[in-house]
Simulated assay, not measured.
Amino acid sequence: MNSPLPTMQEAAQEAEFQLLAAKDLLEWQCALSSAIHLDHLHNGGKSAGALAELAKYFSDTGFGGVYSAIDQFKQLGESETAPQNLQYENVSRDAGGAQ
């Protein structure tokens, strides 16, 4: 699948979204760890197995978007013809003409 490379701004926005999603998943993992610990202390670990399975599910499914965003940045960094944000070009022209 050869899709066009996103602009740096689009890739940065996607990376920001994916990192925020990953942050949420890590916070959920931390909460699950606390719940497993409390379950062992107060309930003899009766729910620990189910909570551990949920933690594994989050781990297995949650970070694919982060890897995709990293790959996009890698492709942009290696591309000699990476799309540029036209707004920056216009700002440069305006600044040069104002002198």
Rank of each mutant, 00 (worst) to 15 (best):
S33Y: 14
G62Q: 02
F63E: 06
H42C: 11
K56Q: 10
I36W: 03
N43V: 02
F63H: 07
W28A: 08
G64I: 08
F58K: 06
H37N: 04
A55C: 08
C30R: 08
Q29P: 11
S47M: 05
L54F: 00
K46T: 08
I36V: 12
S33P: 14
E53M: 05
A52T: 15
S59F: 13
A55R: 10
N43C: 09
S59I: 11
G64W: 11
H42N: 07
G44E: 04
T61Y: 13
L38H: 06
G44R: 03
W28M: 07
L38R: 07
L26R: 10
Q29V: 05
A35C: 13
G45H: 01
L32M: 03
I36L: 02
A55L: 12
G49M: 00
N43P: 07
S47P: 12
S34K: 13
S59C: 06
A52C: 10
A52V: 04
G64K: 12
S33K: 10
H37G: 04
G62A: 01
A35P: 05
D39R: 10
G64T: 12
K46R: 14
I36A: 03
F63A: 07
F63K: 03
H40K: 11
E53D: 11
S59H: 13
E27W: 13
N43T: 02
H40M: 04
G44L: 04
H37M: 09
E27C: 08
H40R: 14
D60L: 03
S34A: 06
F63S: 05
K46C: 05
S34I: 07
S47N: 09
D60K: 09
K56P: 02
S34Y: 06
L41D: 05
E27P: 06
K56V: 10
N43W: 09
L26Q: 10
E27L: 12
A48G: 03
S47V: 03
C30E: 13
K56E: 07
L41K: 12
K46D: 11
N43F: 14
H40C: 04
L38D: 05
K46I: 06
F58C: 06
I36R: 08
L38C: 08
L26F: 15
A35M: 14
H37D: 03
K46W: 13
N43Q: 04
H37F: 15
G49W: 00
H42T: 06
L38Q: 09
A52Q: 14
E53W: 02
A50N: 02
A48Y: 01
D60W: 12
A55T: 12
